[in-house]
């Protein structure tokens, strides 16, 4: 771990937001690419999308069934990575800059 950052400093907020936003945008991008491709595939590859698999068309399988496990999986992945980063972000802060730091050092504020 490199130098610790001031909790209230510009650098810390920047890294905090940038990393989380990058993660969110990556996941959102993957999702939108997948959903956005479906109408185009329906339009330009109809013979594939209209072929049947156990009664349903491939296109129906994708939109009526397949997207849902994908959503759940992406959500799970995001929560994991986002919380991992939060753990990491806690460790990046210089403890001396925490709001409770000085108070905790004072004897009158420590509970018996």
């Amino acid at each position: 771990m490199g130098t610790k950052l001031d909790l209230f400093g510009e650098a810390y907020l920047r890294v905090l937001m940038r990393r989380q936003l990058l993660l969110s945008c990556t996941v959102a991008g993957a999702l939108l690419l997948f959903l956005g491709a479906i109408p185009l595939l329906n339009r330009y590859l109809p013979h594939v999308m209209e072929s049947r698999l156990l009664g349903l068309t491939v296109s129906w399988w994708v939109l009526g069934v397949g997207v849902f496990p994908l959503f759940t999986g992406l959500a799970w992945l995001y929560v994991r990575l986002s919380n991992d980063f939060e753990d990491e972000a806690i460790g990046m802060v210089d403890v001396a800059t925490l709001p409770g730091h000085r108070r905790a050092a004072r004897p009158e504020n420590t509970k018996p």
Partner: peptide, 16 residues
């Protein structure tokens, strides 16, 4: 604004 953003994004464990 910076403090507001920090509160929105900093993990609660940091005491904000």
């Amino acid at each position: 604004a910076r403090l507001k953003m920090l509160k929105l994004h900093a993990p609660e464990e940091l005491g904000l």
